[in-house]
Amino acid sequence: MHRFPSPLLDGYRNFMDGRYIEERERYRALAENGQKPQILLIACCDSRAAPEIIFGSRPGELFVMRNVANMIPPYEPDGHFHATSAALEYAVQSLRVKDIVVMGHGRCGGIQAALDPAAEPLSPGDFIGRWMSLLKPAAEQIQSNDVMTASERQTALERVSIRNSIRNLRTFPCVSILEERGKLQVHGAWFDISNGELWIMDAKTGDFRRPDLEEVVSEPEQDVVAPPDA
């Protein structure tokens, strides 16, 4: 008999008995008035690096886009299907997000595949292989560095991939124009699954550093719920 996965039903039961009761009015307001998240977070599909869990976000706070290795392709207005570009377009043009965060993570399977020249396609379509070819030039350079260990090469490409995605983000006119006008900011981040560390990319140098959470001053919470045409 075809059965819905029981872990999902158990999780849903816990959600309805806990989180939903606490956030009931917020969910109703979001349903009636529409969403108005301020942040687009581009992350990997990896089940170990869920942005909503890492950042403890509430319903309606994050517009999350996830794909293999948290990558953004360059702007290509052709006749093909572009799921990632469509989500980006909607977040920037319709939702009017104020910040875009590209978040990579440690031990990324997509990055590992990009660094393995002997990796066999998982299917005749080789969708992952073709997708990860977006990083081929950088991967080849890092592969050839025999001074680095395998784990160092992995981390290096994970972080280079974030910078590469940010560069591709800026090929989209809707991103570059709003960023130039000061209405949009683009950020990079890297999350270490093994110890929970978050590293933030310096916008000027491209280097990654751990934030001093004691120096962070929380801004007053704004009402993220607004009418759809706001």
Results as ranks from 00 to 15, higher is better:
128 I>F: 04
42 I>P: 01
54 I>G: 07
123 S>L: 00
142 I>E: 08
57 S>D: 06
99 D>K: 15
49 A>H: 00
125 G>N: 11
114 A>Q: 06
45 C>Q: 05
60 G>S: 08
145 N>W: 00
109 G>W: 01
93 Q>R: 13
63 F>C: 03
111 I>F: 06
148 M>W: 10
145 N>Q: 14
114 A>E: 07
65 M>T: 08
42 I>S: 05
49 A>R: 00
71 M>G: 11
46 D>S: 14
41 L>F: 12
124 P>R: 05
67 N>T: 08
145 N>R: 14
43 A>W: 06
40 L>H: 12
144 S>T: 09
136 K>H: 15
79 G>V: 01
64 V>L: 07
123 S>F: 02
107 R>V: 15
63 F>D: 01
122 L>V: 15
39 I>P: 04
40 L>M: 15
45 C>A: 13
82 H>K: 04
45 C>E: 03
134 L>F: 10
78 D>C: 05
89 E>S: 15
68 V>N: 00
97 V>T: 08
61 E>H: 09
81 F>Q: 11
122 L>D: 07
43 A>V: 04
144 S>D: 15
76 E>D: 13
100 I>N: 00
47 S>F: 02
71 M>Y: 10
59 P>C: 08
47 S>G: 09
82 H>C: 11
133 S>V: 00
74 P>V: 01
63 F>S: 09
144 S>P: 02
54 I>E: 08
86 A>Y: 02
51 P>V: 05
124 P>G: 06
83 A>D: 11
142 I>C: 05
104 G>E: 04
44 C>D: 10
82 H>N: 06
80 H>G: 11
83 A>N: 07
121 P>N: 04
134 L>N: 14
144 S>V: 06
134 L>C: 10
147 V>F: 04
74 P>W: 00
108 C>F: 05
83 A>C: 09
95 L>E: 07
64 V>W: 10
45 C>W: 04
64 V>E: 03
112 Q>E: 15
53 I>D: 09
139 A>G: 07
44 C>R: 03
67 N>H: 10
141 Q>P: 10
38 Q>V: 12
81 F>R: 08
89 E>Y: 06
51 P>R: 06
146 D>V: 04
114 A>L: 12
129 G>A: 02
41 L>T: 07
60 G>V: 08
134 L>R: 12
145 N>P: 00
74 P>A: 09
91 A>S: 13
94 S>V: 13
137 P>V: 02
105 H>D: 14
130 R>I: 04
75 Y>F: 11
62 L>D: 07
122 L>T: 15
140 E>I: 01
58 R>T: 08
71 M>S: 14
59 P>R: 07
51 P>C: 11
127 F>C: 12
50 A>L: 02
79 G>T: 03
63 F>M: 08
75 Y>S: 12
102 V>E: 04
76 E>Q: 09
57 S>C: 13
143 Q>V: 02
66 R>A: 08
114 A>C: 11
61 E>V: 09
66 R>E: 09
105 H>N: 08
92 V>Y: 06
60 G>I: 05
113 A>G: 06
94 S>M: 14
121 P>I: 07
151 S>T: 10
86 A>Q: 06
98 K>P: 15
